[in-house]
C-alpha cells in the first residue's frame, strides 16, 4: 500500500493552482481531502506524477450565506458542514447527510468539493447537490464558468470538471416556503458508501399539497440521477403515504443500475423504491414539523 513517486505542489491561490494544473495536464491530480485519491494511489490504481494540494488556498474553505444563496468552498470538510448552524437552519439536509458520510475521521478530512468533483457513483453529496439544484463554480485557464448540478455528473467517476480546471465553490439556493427535506441512505457495511441514497425535498401548500418536489438518487447506478418521473407524479398532488409510495415505484427510471457481490441490480432497484418512499415520508414529516435537522434525524 505504498504509492508510486509524485511531485507535490501546495499553491496558495486559485490562479496558482490552475496554472499548475494547466502546466502538468493529465499528469496532475488535485488533492483535497485525499479520501478517494490517496487510497487509489496506495493501491496503485492511480499514479499521478503531480499532486496539486489545494488545502492551503484560504478562499476555498468555508460556508457563506448571502441573500437567498449559500456558497460552500470546495475544501470545506464534511465535518464543517455537519456542525454548521447556518446550514442546520436553512439547508438542514446538508448537515444531516454529512452525519452519514464515513466515520468521524473521514468527515474531518474529506471535502465537499472533492467528493463532488470525484463523482463517485456511491458518494452521498452528488444526490444532495442534485436535489438542491446546486451550481458549481469551476475555474480554468479561460476563466470561470458555472455548471448546474444537473449537468455536472457526467458518468461513472466523471464530472464536468475538465483537466486543468478546478471546482472552487458550490452555490445552493435556499428554498423558500414550507419546505421539508431529507436524505435517506442504505450504507455498505464495509465502505460506508451509499448502496442507495435518496435526497428528497418537498415544498408544500396547505394540507400537504405539493407545490414542488425534487428527488435525487445516488449509489444505485453509474451516476447520481434525478427521479424526474416520481417528481412529476407528485407535483400538484396532495401528499400521503400511498401517493408517495406509488410515485416511488418509478424512481428508478433513467438509472443505469450497477450490481456487485453485495447488492445486485435487482436489489438496488428495490432499494431505490423503498428509500425514495422513506425519504419522501421524512421530507413530508419535516415540512409538517417545521424543518430542523433534529426532526429529520428522528426518522
Amino acid at each position: 500500500m505504498i504509492p508510486g513517486q509524485f511531485d507535490y505542489h501546495a499553491p496558495t491561490t486559485v490562479q496558482e493552482a490552475v496554472q499548475l494544473l494547466q502546466e502538468h495536464g493529465d499528469e496532475a491530480k488535485v488533492l483535497a481531502g485525499g479520501h478517494s485519491l490517496v487510497p487509489l494511489m496506495r493501491l496503485r490504481l492511480a499514479a499521478p506524477s503531480v499532486l496539486v494540494d489545494i488545502n492551503r488556498i484560504p478562499e476555498l474553505r468555508g460556508i457563506n450565506r448571502t441573500n437567498g444563496t449559500v456558497t460552500i468552498g470546495a475544501t470545506t470538510t464534511h465535518a464543517t458542514i455537519e456542525r454548521s448552524e447556518v446550514l442546520k437552519r436553512v439547508l438542514p439536509m446538508l448537515p444531516a447527510a454529512a452525519t452519514v458520510i464515513g466515520d468521524p475521521m473521514v468527515r474531518n478530512r474529506g471535502t465537499f468539493g472533492g467528493s463532488l468533483a470525484h463523482a463517485d457513483p456511491a458518494g452521498d453529496w452528488p444526490a444532495v447537490a442534485l436535489a438542491l439544484n446546486a451550481e458549481m463554480r469551476i475555474v480554468g485557464p479561460d476563466g470561470e464558468r458555472t455548471v448546474p448540478a444537473g449537468e455536472f455528473f457526467v458518468d461513472l467517476l466523471t464530472s464536468a470538471v475538465e483537466p486543468g480546471e478546478l471546482l472552487t465553490h458550490v452555490s445552493i439556493p435556499v428554498p423558500g416556503g414550507n419546505v421539508g427535506m431529507s436524505y435517506q441512505k442504505f450504507g455498505h457495511p464495509a465502505s460506508g458508501y451509499a448502496v442507495t441514497g435518496v435526497a428528497a425535498i418537498v415544498t408544500l401548500y396547505e394540507n400537504n399539497y405539493c407545490l414542488d418536489c425534487s428527488i435525487a438518487i445516488t449509489g444505485a447506478g453509474t451516476k447520481a440521477t434525478r427521479a424526474t418521473e416520481t417528481e412529476n407524479a407528485l407535483r400538484n398532488q396532495t401528499l400521503d403515504e400511498a401517493t408517495m409510495a406509488q410515485a416511488a415505484e418509478q424512481a428508478g427510471t433513467g438509472i443505469d443500475f450497477l450490481g456487485d457481490i453485495y447488492a445486485s441490480e435487482e436489489y438496488r432497484q428495490q432499494l431505490v423504491k423503498v428509500y425514495t418512499k422513506r425519504a419522501l415520508l421524512a421530507a413530508l414529516h419535516a415540512a409538517n414539523e417545521g424543518q430542523s435537522a433534529e426532526a429529520q434525524k428522528t426518522l
Binding site: D240, E241, A245, A248
Partner: peptide, 12 residues
Amino acid sequence: APTGGSHPPGDA
C-alpha cells in the same frame, strides 16, 4: 406467507 408478491403501494 403474508400477502402476495406485490404488496399495496404505500404499505410500509
